[in-house]
Simulated assay, not measured.
Amino acid sequence: MPEHRAVSGSAAAVPALSISGLSVALGPGSDATRIIHDVNLEVARGECVGVVGESGCGKTVSFLATLGLLPSVLRVSGSAKLAGEEILGIGEKRLEKVRGRKVGMIFQDPQSALNPVRTIGAQVMEPLRRHLGMSARHAEERALELLSLVGIPAARDRLKAYPHEISGGTCQRVMIAVALASEPEVLIADEPTTALDATVQLQVLDLLRSIQEKTSLSIVFITHDLGVVAEICNRVVVMYAGRTIEAQNIPKVFEEPDHPYTRALLDCLPALDIDGAPPRAISGDVPMPGRAPPGCPFHPRCPRASDICREKVPVMQSMGAGQQGVACHHPLQGHA
């Protein structure tokens, strides 16, 4: 496992991104269906925090809510601050100055996120001209540099291409270039390496690390790939059924996870040695929003579940210094 750079205390004093009590609901009042439940997360300046969990756990929805990108039918509450300034509920006009400039996002499905009727060049140049005030000529030069940085060959030819004329992997790299174009302070990367082959994936991770070292970029890395988390992240936040259930530093989360769900995710990974245990699938499924069972939402799938797990939702309890904790009635470490 790679060595991970510590984030200094002074840098962590005012988080680059702070989410507190974030909730998302569909419907009015007491009849609302809760999709996200009181999510809390902090990212220090220059830190990379991985957010993991199965599909349907609320990872993407939480950060779309933070940036005001959910449909208006969904009600968002809580707090989200960039460098101490509230951005949740500040209005679309003010958010337009924040999105793309102070915070960039790499969307999960780049072929849907990119505009199909605009060229690649126009889409990479837009944040450069809009947020950084570059001239058309300088924006084109910088767009060529960005496309080359993310590993796109024949970058000048790609400037004139449309999204449907390039592969999914190339679209993914274009999306990364767009997100990094205006040099944001925070980058939310939603499965940014999924469509990339192993070689390009490593190039993108190296690029993000290099930018971090030069600019103290803060990254939220949403992914299913725990190998990528081990490679680039300082800390990990585990989500399940719209809740944050564990937060730990690396490498502790890989060596001594506290939540049974985190342990189950790790058991899904194939062993590197021949004599290692085979991967084990997690039985059952993530509950649909509004259909979670009473008590801990993981208890129907948990081998450690007891009566209290079926009756009471566990709250996050501190398990060490910093942003570390677990929401479990029977955490693995220090308990029988």
Rank of each mutant, 00 (worst) to 15 (best):
H138W: 13
A139D: 11
A139R: 12
E141I: 14
E141M: 08
E141P: 03
E141R: 08
R142W: 10
R142E: 14
R142S: 07
L144G: 01
L144F: 08
L144I: 11
E145T: 06
L146K: 08
L146C: 02
V150Q: 06
V150Y: 01
I152P: 03
P153R: 11
A154E: 15
R156T: 14
D157I: 13
R158T: 12
K160M: 14
A161N: 14
Y162R: 11
Y162W: 10
Y162V: 11
P163I: 09
E165M: 13
I166S: 07
S167C: 06
S167L: 02
S167Y: 04
S167A: 05
G168W: 01
G169K: 12
T170W: 10
C171D: 02
Q172G: 01
Q172I: 06
R173L: 00
R173S: 01
M175H: 00
M175Y: 04
V178W: 00
A179L: 04
A179Q: 04
L180R: 02
A181P: 00
S182V: 11
S182T: 11
E183W: 02
P184D: 07
P184R: 00
P184M: 02
E185M: 11
V186R: 06
V186Q: 03
V186Y: 06
V186M: 06
A189I: 13
D190L: 01
D190A: 01
E191R: 10
E191G: 09
P192T: 08
P192M: 04
T193P: 01
T193Q: 03
T194V: 07
T194K: 06
T194M: 03
A195N: 04
A195M: 05
L196P: 01
L196K: 03
D197F: 08
D197S: 08
T199C: 07
V200Q: 00
V200T: 09
Q201S: 02
Q201H: 10
Q203C: 09
Q203T: 13
V204G: 01
V204P: 00
L205K: 01
L205F: 01
L207I: 11
L207C: 05
R209G: 10
S210H: 08
S210N: 12
S210F: 03
I211E: 07
I211K: 11
E213T: 14
K214P: 09
T215E: 14
T215Y: 07
S216N: 15
S216Y: 12
S216T: 04
L217T: 08
L217Y: 11
S218I: 12
S218N: 04
F221M: 07
F221T: 05
F221E: 00
I222Q: 13
T223D: 05
T223R: 06
T223W: 02
H224S: 04
G227R: 11
V228L: 02
V229D: 03
A230T: 06
A230H: 02
E231L: 05
I232D: 04
C233M: 09
N234S: 09
N234I: 10
R235L: 05
V236K: 02
V237A: 15
V237R: 06
V238D: 03
M239Q: 06
M239G: 06
Y240G: 11
Y240Q: 10
Y240E: 15
A241S: 10
A241N: 12
A241D: 12
G242I: 07
I245W: 06
I245T: 09
I245S: 02
E246V: 11
E246C: 02
